[in-house]
């Protein structure tokens, strides 16, 4: 918009002259957007950011390093990391199969990849719990060998593997299918073995997508609640996840404590996102 409307040559700046936007609705659409974003996202998050300091910075630190909270954060972190790593391999493999092969049932498999997105977490939670409980289909089998899956960190890990799978597959799949088969064929004609082709040609190409899928799966795992709490058993220090501790603190009306745990979780998530973002930038610089 012109900062100043000149009135030389008898030119009177009319209203329309100041409106340099041709497409209508700027004020209204941006107004609605900012209203929603402020009321639904920004103000509530400010409430979260301002709450933990009630008992000073040391109160915040004390909460985070409280034995039970620290154990929960550690369990959430490790299970999410491990589940995301497993999904990294399995996700690439399934994406590869879906992109590179034709086989009966392919479209069905493709559609069902999104099931963990579509299925309400409480449903996945009770279903997984029923399967892996000591009297369940799989849980019963392992119970005979004295291995507990449900009500242990293994259960949390399994729930997070379930929830994280679509993130990796859906990140990698489009990149793989865009990758020209000719590039692979060129590598082959130059004498590369299939493994070499994968390592030197395909992997670098899908790396950025892989990293973003990984970070999404990890962040989801850190915050996941519904599909985990049923199978986890929620034994303090053993199989209690960080989000559950927020609920526990709220039940004790310890708002500051709940907010501290929440911020602790966000800090871990953002640290991972930031680290992966840096890695991605590094790859981007190499032109990948």
């Amino acid at each position: 918009m012109p900062a100043e409307i000149s009135s030389q040559d008898g030119f009177i700046a009319p209203k329309a002259f100041r409106r340099t936007r041709v497409i209508p609705g700027f004020t209204m659409s941006l107004g609605i957007t900012i209203f929603f974003v402020s009321v639904i996202v920004i103000i509530p998050l400010l409430a979260l950011l301002m709450r933990p300091w009630e008992n000073g910075f040391s109160g915040f630190i004390d909460t985070l390093f409280d034995k039970r909270v620290f154990a929960a954060l550690k369990i959430s972190f490790l299970c999410s990391l491990l589940a995301a790593l497993v999904n990294l391999f399995v996700g690439v493999l399934i994406a590869w199969v879906l992109v590179r092969y034709d086989f009966p049932g392919k479209k069905l498999v493709d559609a069902f990849i999104d099931m963990p997105f579509a299925l309400p977490t409480a449903v996945s939670g009770i279903a997984l719990s029923a399967i892996y409980a000591p009297n369940g289909w799989i849980g019963g089998f392992f119970d005979d060998f004295g291995i507990k899956i449900a009500y242990s960190p293994i259960g949390i890990f399994i729930a997070l593997v379930f929830i994280g799978l679509p993130f990796i597959v859906r990140s990698v799949q489009p990149v793989l299918s865009e990758l020209e088969a000719e590039v692979e064929e060129a590598a082959e004609t130059l004498g590369a073995s299939p493994l070499q082709t994968f390592n030197h040609v395909i992997l670098p190409a899908i790396m950025p997508a892989l990293l973003s899928g990984f970070s999404l799966a990890f962040a989801r795992g850190m915050g996941e609640y519904g599909s985990v709490i049923f199978i986890a058993g929620n034994i303090p220090y053993v199989s209690e996840i960080a989000p559950l501790l927020i609920v526990v603190k709220l039940e004790e009306y310890d708002y500051a404590g709940a907010a501290s745990v929440g911020i602790g979780m966000l800090m871990i998530s953002f640290a991972i996102l930031f680290a992966l973002n840096l890695t991605q930038r590094y790859f981007a610089k190499k032109g990948l």
Binding site: F11, I12, P14, A16, T20, V22
Partner: peptide, 22 residues
């Protein structure tokens, strides 16, 4: 009328074009 000048006039058959929206 999709863009506006900082200065100047556009006159079309006696009408001040800049005062008219698209």
């Amino acid at each position: 009328g999709l863009d506006y000048p900082d200065k100047g006039t556009i006159d079309f058959k006696g009408q001040n074009y800049l005062s008219l929206p698209v």
